[in-house]
């Protein structure tokens, strides 16, 4: 597989076209069309990196992108985010999702919401939503339901609990489930969690168990740079201390 080759680390300004050719030789299928993802830019007949990170490649679709890790969120369509309501207007809420511009949440973008019957959120309320419009020239728009099915699919207001911050890359890893920390904690304690790709993680271990919520938050924060075994040891130690 071309995956080995595509573990190369690139810096902004580096030409990556040469790496592509190597990959294409190994593959037979449709090497003409290359799909460029985040962190890559075509200038003339050259392709260069504009972000630093690991150059990733999916041979099947011939897709290339640079996987970096940052803290500032740039909205992308379909991504789940956690935000705080900052204002209410006639047509919708303004929500701080950590991006450069605040997002708009239409009043009716909730499951089963009608003009007469819609949720009334106060300023400062925490919501879990999905980005529906993301465009660099427009303010992002988010929604708390799936507009095709009309179901909430877990989105909506988050009640109680505590939010912590983490890097965007780590939140991504937590959502793609190749990170064991959540299931390890789950072996010891029941808890609810919501992960926003904007670097916010909401944790709730129940109304009366503040200590547990804080502990789970700490465990998740600590887990960013740990592997499976280290996570297990770390969680075990935290649980024993409690």
């Amino acid at each position: 597989m071309a995956q080995v080759k595509s573990h190369k680390i690139v810096l902004p300004g580096e030409q990556v076209s040469d790496l592509f050719e190597n990959n294409q030789n190994e593959e037979s299928n449709n090497s003409e069309v290359i799909c460029l993802g985040p962190g890559l830019l075509q200038t003339g007949d050259q392709i260069q990196a504009i972000n630093s990170g690991v150059l990733r490649h999916i041979p099947k679709t011939n897709k290339y992108w640079v996987q970096g890790n940052k803290r500032k969120y740039t909205p992308a369509t379909g991504e789940p985010v956690i935000g705080v309501i900052t204002a209410k207007h006639a047509e919708g809420y303004r929500v701080d999702i950590g991006s450069a511009h605040q997002a708009t949440l239409p009043l009716l973008a909730f499951e089963g919401a009608t003009k007469r019957n819609k949720p009334n959120l106060s300023i400062g309320a925490l919501i879990y939503a999905k980005v529906s419009i993301a465009n660099k020239d427009m303010d992002p728009e988010i929604e708390c339901y799936n507009s095709d099915t009309g179901k909430s699919e877990g989105f909506g207001e988050l009640k109680n609990g505590f939010t912590i911050r983490a890097s965007l890359g780590f939140c991504h890893r937590l959502l793609t489930s190749d990170t064991p920390i959540l299931s390890i904690i789950g072996q010891y304690l029941p808890f609810e969690v919501a992960i926003g790709l904007n670097g916010h993680i909401w944790v709730n271990a129940g109304e009366e168990s503040h200590k547990k919520t804080v502990m789970i938050g700490n465990a998740i924060e600590n887990a960013e740079h740990l592997n499976h075994n280290e996570c297990q040891a770390m969680v075990k130690e935290l649980m024993n201390r409690a």
Binding site: V84, S122, G124, A125, L126, W202, H210, T213, V214, G217
Partner: peptide, 24 residues
């Protein structure tokens, strides 16, 4: 200024009442 959510504010206060701080 006002970027902390009601959830975090309420959690901090009620946790404090049970003797817990948000950083443990």
């Amino acid at each position: 200024e006002n970027k902390i959510s009601n959830n975090n504010r309420e959690f901090l206060l009620s946790a404090l009442k049970s003797g817990t701080r948000v950083d443990g």
